[in-house]
Nucleic acid binder design. Structure first.
Length: 877
DNA sequence: ATAGGGTTAG
């Protein structure tokens, strides 16, 4: 690698310098001043010309005159005097004057050069009415004039006028012009017409048409052309071969491109560049770098494009060393000031996690384009320095560099990573000012930013203002609703979407969490059916989301079944399934799966450990929990985060080792948050330690004063200890602070409909029947010597009666409703927004035995499976 | 006398 053919780059530079000056042209130019200084009148000039050309005795007078005329017109053309030239070819003395084809060509060329379509058209008329035949040379000039003046239809018209044409050249002119204008379809259509007119294509035709097929992604068409050109023997042409390589690269057929490249009898630098960039963009970066090094060792001339093509491959592979060598080489080759190269180098350094070098390079650049700034903004974002990224954007704007769509999308990404709504809105303003808000990429990035910053109202407003949406717009908003815990909005939008777009796998992965969050098994199953029909179970995101959905909808067995069916399970799949077992209190299954995962060679990350610790704590597996905590720290060198500590505190607290838990918290190397102390507070309730509870509650209230859940918890602790005075005081404190308890609410799904029950709500149409049933339950419980735990009746802000709150708890209403309205035998699935109340927990146990049905209750913390008078949580809730 | 193939940032 060290011995670099430095000369090759400088060779390129010679070839880029202006072409050597043609001596003969220089000579003819010396004539011009004479004409410039001659009288303005046409006669005067003619006179000058005549005096020059006279003396050829064999030329007749009239021929002489035409010769003079032709020469004169061409002179005007050389001078760029189109007006005079036009007057001479259209003038009255021009009829049958012997103006020849070559002269007309000069006039047309000048029209083309000046872009004067009107004159060109007039010249075309003159030519058509003259007796000069339109051969392929003159015809080509006419086409040339039309395409340069932007009139492609005019150019197409000429093709039919050319007599006995077999020359592909004028056709090629048009083909290229269509392609340049982005009208690849038009170009392909012309190619077919050309074929119909029996014009044999040449290498130019093939390279142009291959590009059209490449860009428009018409693989089949390109393959037909490939066969066609092989029959005509064009596969040996380097340019055609290069176009073929580019065609296959752009259409993800890198293997075909590589074998073509390998079999090329001759290659030039463009062949190498094409295959290297093709490898890099097709995920064959290693091969791309390999080709680059062999190019280097073979001493093939490299140019700027070579380096710019191989850098993304180095970037993707994290080949910092090769990247550095290329950087050094390019500097020695005098390319240090090439903007495109510097931009690619910045990106390479950033992707190789070397922000410092990127910054250094960026600061040394004497000119920077919007691309350079964007690359730097992305580099800072990739490094997690969101503030730097955002201020760089501001600096760019203040320096008068106009951001384009890439610049704004990358800074929006920084805003969403940082979750900084204010900066995001600032960028939004700038987008509106620059008129970029109609750009779909920009609009989608804006929606994503608002969604990630939790501002779904603004996300929706951008969505509504975007007239032409694509699938990504819909997916972004649906995913935003899902992630921001607005599952109903997500599902509603999903329903609306289906009359506009066919959902894809991303849609599925976005909508499944909404079903999961609603515990909506029926909707989840519908989506599952859709996944099967559209065959996107193979997408790992979709498969993982499906397993998660089943677990969170209480269908643990289904979750496991689909987990088993998954191909290519990744770390996330295993972690989700372990977490699934955890939330259902299947600690041993979670541990077994964790072991299996490690046996499969999958390395757990911090999230996997949260899942397994959570599973241990929710199943009361203290020793196992400690073991995993130590494995995580010692074996995997993962520094515990708040979530891990919370699990450990939970574990100790449940086991009744409250003092140990307290000391554990105090010894934590990171600052404990309210969830940590909250876990201990829960333990205080289970083990009825009022004194410690008060100390802990103080800390919790300080850290999270707005969360009423903790006041409820402390009130429960007081109530269970029958300290009614303390309950009253706490209630007063809550109302003094203006806090209101989040109303309890439960919901169930029945025949595709969601029924919602709010605590104490009597407005339901079946309210009477439900109450009758619950009273019956209470009576039977009393018969079996069950004492209702009135102490769970809590501290509602207002003083709604305790007992009413008790029998009116939402989960109880929901269970009763299902029993009254659905066939026996079917499991009863209920979801609740808060933790299940202790009394309802007892009632649910009782009901499950009484009616002989399984009740699956999901509360805000975990699942409870009630069966035959027992709950799967075994009191661990 | 002049038209072709390869290039970075989301």
């Amino acid at each position: 690698m060290a011995a670099a053919p430095l000369s090759s780059i400088s060779n390129l530079y010679h070839s880029l310098s202006p072409p050597p000056i043609n001596r003969s042209k220089l000579k003819s130019r010396t004539h011009h001043p004479r004409i410039l200084f001659s009288p303005k009148s046409r006669l005067g000039v003619l006179h000058a010309e005549v005096s020059e050309t006279i003396g050829n005795a064999s030329v007749s007078i009239s021929e002489n005159r035409s010769f003079d005329l032709n020469a004169q017109i061409r002179r005007f053309c050389q001078l760029g005097n189109l007006k005079e030239a036009m007057e001479m070819i259209t003038g009255s003395d021009s009829k049958h004057s012997g103006i020849d084809s070559e002269t007309y060509c000069s006039v047309l060329e000048l029209c083309a050069k000046l872009g004067s379509l009107d004159d060109g058209r007039r010249a075309h008329l003159v030519i058509s009415s003259s007796n000069v035949p339109i051969d392929s040379v003159l015809g080509s000039k006419l086409v040339f004039m039309y395409v340069k003046c932007g009139d492609l239809r005019g150019g197409r018209g000429v093709l039919d006028e050319i007599a006995f044409n077999a020359n592909p050249f004028p056709w090629n002119l048009l083909l290229n012009e269509h392609a340049k204008a982005g009208d690849f379809k038009g170009s392909i259509f012309l190619f077919k017409e050309m074929h119909g007119s029996c014009i044999a294509p040449d290498s130019h035709t093939f390279s142009c048409i291959l590009k059209c097929f490449a860009v428009s992604g018409r693989v089949r068409g390109g393959e037909v052309v490939h066969g066609h050109l092989m029959k005509l023997g064009f596969e040996a042409s380097i340019t055609v071969g290069n176009a073929l390589i580019a065609f296959y690269c752009k259409n993800n057929r890198i293997e075909s491109a590589i074998s073509l490249f390998d079999e090329m009898p001759q290659r030039d630098v463009i062949s190498w560049n094409s295959i290297i960039s093709g490898c890099a963009s097709n995920g064959f970066s290693t091969k791309g770098v390999e080709l680059f090094t062999s190019m280097w060792f073979e001493g093939v001339d490299m140019d700027l494009a070579t380096l710019v093509s191989v850098l993304p491959a180095c970037a993707e592979l994290g080949y910092l060393l090769i990247g550095r060598v290329i950087h050094g080489y390019s500097t020695k080759a005098g390319l240090a000031n090439e903007l495109s190269l510097s931009n690619s180098l910045i990106d390479m350094y950033s992707k190789c996690s070397n922000l410092g070098s990127a910054v250094q390079l960026f600061e040394k650049m004497d000119q920077r384009s919007v691309v350079s700034w964007t690359a730097m903004i992305t580099a800072y974002t990739r490094d997690g320095q969101y503030d730097e990224a955002i201020s760089l954007f501001e600096e760019m704007e203040s320096r008068g560099v106009k951001p384009d769509q890439f610049a704004v999308t990358s800074v929006l990404h920084a805003c969403s990573c940082k979750g900084s709504l204010n900066h995001g809105k600032f960028v939004h303003d700038s987008i509106v000012k620059s008129g970029m808000k109609k750009n779909l990429f920009v609009a989608n990035a804006l929606m994503d930013m608002y969604a990630k910053c939790g501002d779904m109202e603004n996300a929706r407003s951008v969505f509504d203002q975007t007239v032409k949406k694509d699938l990504i717009s819909w997916n972004t908003l649906i995913g935003g609703y899902s992630k921001n815990n607005l599952p109903n909005e997500a599902l509603h939008l999903f329903g609306e979407m289906q009359s506009h777009f066919r959902p894809n796998s991303v849609t599925m992965a976005c909508i499944l969490p909404a079903c999961a969050s609603l515990s909506s098994l029926e909707r989840g199953r519908e989506i599952h059916g859709y996944i099967l029909r559209t065959n996107c179970f193979g997408d790992s995101y979709v498969a993982n989301a499906l397993v998660d959905m089943y677990a969170k909808c209480g269908a643990l067995l289904l979750a496991r079944m689909h987990f088993n069916r998954m191909f290519g399970k990744n770390l996330i799949s295993w972690t989700m399934m372990i977490a699934g077992y955890g939330m259902h209190g299947h600690g041993q299954d979670a541990i077994a799966l964790f072991k299996e995962m490690r046996c499969k060679g999958i390395v757990p990350d911090d999230v996997s450990f949260i899942a397994i610790l959570y599973a241990c704590s929710h199943s009361g597996l203290i020793d196992e929990g400690w073991r995993f905590f130590n494995i995580m720290r010692n074996e995997y060198k993962i520094e515990p985060k708040l979530e891990h500590y919370a699990c450990m505190v939970d574990l100790l607290s449940r086991a009744g080792r409250l003092n140990k838990a307290y000391k554990f918290i105090e010894a934590m190397p990171i600052e404990p948050d309210s969830t940590i102390w909250g876990a201990l507070l829960c333990g205080c309730r289970i083990h009825r330690d009022v004194k410690l509870a008060e100390t802990v509650a103080e800390k919790v209230f300080e850290l999270e004063p707005q969360n009423t859940g903790y006041y409820v918890l402390l009130a429960n602790i007081y109530a269970e200890a029958e300290k009614w005075e303390a309950v009253k005081k706490l209630r007063e404190k809550v109302s003094r602070r203006g806090l209101k308890k989040n109303p309890g609410c439960s919901w169930i799904e029945m025949k595709g409909k969601v029924h919602i029950f709010v605590s104490g709500d009597k407005s339901h149409s079946q309210s009477k029947k439900i109450m009758d049933f619950l009273e019956e339950v209470t009576r039977r419980m009393k018969d079996e010597a069950y004492v209702p735990k009135t102490r769970y009746a809590l501290i509602n802000g207002d003083d709604s009666a305790k007992e009413e709150a008790l029998c009116g708890h939402s989960e109880r209403l929901a269970i009763a409703f299902v029993i009254l309205n659905s066939p026996t035998g079917k499991p009863i699935r209920v979801a609740k927004n808060l933790r299940v109340c202790g009394d309802c927990h007892e009632v649910a146990k009782f009901i499950s035995k009484m009616v002989g049905r399984e009740i699956i209750l999901r509360d805000s913390n975990r699942f409870h499976h009630f069966k035959e008078g027992r709950c799967s949580c075994r009191g661990q809730w």
